[in-house]
Simulated scan of single mutants.
Amino acid sequence: MTTATEKNIHPRIRPAMLGIAALWALAPLAVPVAAQAQGFPEKPITFVVPFAAGSATDQLARAIGQAVTNDSKVSVVVDNKPGANSFIGAQAAAKAKPDGYTVFITTNTTQSANEHLFKKLPYDPVKDFTPLTALGRGGQIMVVNPALPVNSVSEFIALAKSKPGKLSFGSGSSSSRVAGEQFKQMTGTYILNIPYKSNPPAVTDLLGGQIDMMITDMTTGLPQVKAGKLKALGVSTRQRSPLAPDVPTIAEAGVKGYEMTYWFAAYAPAGTPADVVAKLSDMLVKAARSPSAAPFYQASGTEIFTSNPEELRKFQAAETLKWGKIIKAAGIEPE
Rank of each mutant, 00 (worst) to 15 (best):
T3P: 02
E6Q: 15
K7E: 15
H10I: 04
R12D: 15
R14D: 03
R14K: 14
A16D: 04
A16R: 13
G19V: 12
A25E: 00
P28M: 01
A30P: 00
A30E: 03
A34D: 04
A35S: 13
A37T: 05
Q38D: 13
F40Q: 06
E42R: 10
F47A: 05
V48Q: 03
A52C: 12
A53E: 14
A53G: 11
T57I: 13
A61P: 07
V68Q: 04
N70S: 13
N70E: 15
D71K: 13
S72M: 08
K73R: 14
V76N: 10
V78I: 13
D79C: 05
P82H: 09
N85F: 12
N85W: 06
A90I: 10
A92F: 06
A94R: 08
K95W: 01
A96W: 10
Y101P: 04
V103L: 11
I105R: 05
T110M: 06
A113Q: 14
E115K: 12
E115I: 14
H116M: 07
H116E: 07
Y123W: 11
Y123I: 11
D124P: 05
T130K: 10
A134Q: 09
L135K: 03
G138E: 01
G139Q: 15
I141C: 02
V143D: 08
V144C: 06
N145V: 07
A147R: 12
A147S: 14
A147E: 12
V150T: 11
V150H: 11
N151W: 01
S154D: 15
G172N: 10
S174Q: 13
S175R: 00
S175V: 09
S175C: 02
V178L: 02
A179M: 08
Q182T: 15
F183H: 01
M186N: 00
T187G: 00
P195I: 08
N199T: 14
N199S: 14
T204V: 11
D205V: 09
L207K: 11
G208Y: 01
G208H: 11
D212L: 06
M214S: 08
D217A: 12
T219E: 04
T219Q: 11
G221Q: 07
V225K: 09
K229I: 02
L230F: 09
L233F: 06
L233Y: 03
R238G: 12
S241K: 04
P242H: 10
E252G: 00
G257D: 13
G257K: 01
E259D: 09
T261M: 11
F264D: 09
A270K: 14
G271T: 06
T272S: 05
V276G: 06
S281E: 07
D282P: 00
D282Y: 01
K286Q: 13
A287I: 09
R289Q: 14
S290V: 08
P295G: 08
F296W: 11
Y297H: 10
A299G: 05
A299R: 10
T306R: 05
S307I: 12
N308G: 15
L312E: 15
L312F: 12
L312D: 04
L312G: 00
A318F: 02
T320V: 08
W323Q: 12
G324D: 04
G324H: 03
I326W: 00
A329K: 14
A329M: 08
G331Q: 11
I332H: 01
